[in-house]
Design a protein around this nucleic acid. Structure first.
Length: 446
DNA sequence: ATGATCT
């Protein structure tokens, strides 16, 4: 902590949950570090935030929110009030981060100025589209214009008119190309958001590209508020974030011990070979899965996504698969079908590991464990947390099955367990229907 | 040899 900064333990503030989030993880120990002597009062109602009547209507009528969640109560006064300091905020999956920066963007836009004033950068096309849908819903009565910056049509960038929308939400690559083609003016930007910020700033993530955008904007904008949001910030990224925000910024972090996985029932299943993995998926997941809601199966590579999908399809099991090599239209179609509940089981690479919000998902399968890309024997604990965060965003039922094959997998799994300080129960026999039933029952799913 | 974004 910098000298002069004030650490406030806001752990005992009243928790005001959104009506519709039954099992919102308790952000019980958010550590707030506010810089300087700017006082902030936690907002117990949305009225206190001085939102426009149109925006407030969107919050209540469209979003059906009642009161700010914990992260919203603490972060929104920091985001919405002068001097509009930069913010680094960590909060649990499903705790309402999107609402924080969406309200931030919508309320800082000057409706009369028809130019990009808020920009949100996301790691994937799917997340950008999802975030834009939330923003349009929340901002329905404001008349604020928005545009999705993802590769969509086949019109070359140079044949496009300049972007006029007041809020732009998009993926890194598209935003970057729009900027270098001078189609996205940033002179009037007031607020810049990085969703899944730790990944956006990670060395093995999108660090270089993010810095390009950041520097480009800072050259043309004297004062643009920067918000960094994620459920995870490892120590390396955490240290680096101070390089991209103003020295005089606010921070909200969750204690590592508090980032617990308690609300998810985790299991490990030892299998002898890959065929056994496929058999577990078809005999257990398909048998029980449909009864307990939707399922996402995470695999490591695009190729194994395709292979698993083919194996299951050959056996007559109905599921879909998504990965970055598919055509954009196909990706959109598969996500839409899944969100509409038309498909029950979706196989995915880590494309959907972060941020993807589908409340009916109650089961997550780690067909392959999440590992570092430069070292396949090292677990990627951040990705693990994000993957299991896809399950049970609504209601209190959720389970994760980790399929382990061989010594290395067991070693990786035990490293994940010790990293989070949790013990993952083992399903004794992968062939036993009763063992799976017992596991699902214990998770509250049967 | 491998996830994610663009030109």
């Amino acid at each position: 902590m910098e000298p002069g900064e004030l650490a406030v333990d806001v752990g005992n503030l009243t928790i005001n949950q959104n009506k519709n989030s039954i099992n919102e993880p308790q952000d019980s120990n958010i550590k707030a570090v506010t810089s300087g002597d700017t006082p902030y009062t936690s907002a117990s109602t949305f009225e206190e935030l001085n939102l426009s009547p149109e925006l407030l209507k969107g919050v209540y009528v469209e979003m059906k929110f009642e009161k700010p969640s914990k992260i919203q109560a603490i972060s929104l006064p920091m985001i919405l009030n002068p001097p509009f300091k930069d913010l680094i905020a960590q909060a649990h999956n499903g705790s309402g981060k999107t609402t924080c920066f969406t309200l931030g963007m919508l309320s800082r836009v000057d409706p009369k100025l028809k130019a990009p004033q808020a920009l949100c950068i996301c790691p994937t096309r799917e997340l950008a589209i999802q975030n834009l849908e939330v923003l349009r819903k929340m901002g329905k009565y404001t008349g604020i214009t928005s545009e999705c910056g993802v590769p969509m049509d086949h019109i070359p960038i140079h044949q496009r008119p300049p972007i006029m929308a007041q809020v732009v939400i998009g993926t890194l690559g598209t935003i970057k190309s729009w900027m270098s083609a001078k189609k996205l003016g940033v002179s009037f930007l007031k607020i810049l958001v990085f969703d899944e910020a730790d990944h956006m700033l990670a060395e093995d993530g999108f660090k270089g590209e993010s810095l390009y955008i950041m520097e480009n904007i800072k050259k043309l904008c004297s004062h643009c508020q920067v918000l960094l949001f994620s459920a995870t910030f490892n120590d390396i990224v955490k240290n680096f974030t101070s390089m991209v925000v103003n020295d005089d910024h606010n921070q909200l972090f969750i204690k590592k011990e508090e980032l617990s996985l308690e609300s998810v029932k985790q299991y490990k299943v030892n299998v002898p070979d890959e065929l056994a993995k496929v058999m577990v998926v078809k005999d257990r997941i398909f048998e029980f899965g449909e009864r307990v809601g939707q399922t996402i199966i995470f695999v490591r590579t695009r190729n194994s996504a395709t292979m698993l999908h083919r194996s299951l399809a050959d056996l007559g099991y109905d599921c879909t698969t998504i990965q970055g090599a598919l055509r954009q239209e196909d990706r959109d179609k598969i996500v839409k079908e899944f969100k509409d509940g038309l498909t029950q089981v979706l196989i995915s690479t880590d494309l959907l590991a972060r941020g993807f919000d589908q409340q009916q998902v109650n089961l997550v399968i780690n067909y392959d464990l999440p590992v570092k890309h430069d070292n396949r024997t090292t677990p990627d604990c951040e990705v693990y947390l994000h993957r299991i965060g896809r399950a049970g965003r609504f209601g209190c039922k959720r389970a994760v099955f980790n399929l382990l094959c061989g010594e290395t997998d067991n070693m990786i799994m035990s490293k994940i367990e010790s990293h989070f300080g949790t013990k993952v129960a083992e399903v004794p026999d992968w062939r036993s229907e009763d063992d799976f039933k017992a596991a699902l029952r214990s998770a509250g799913l049967l």
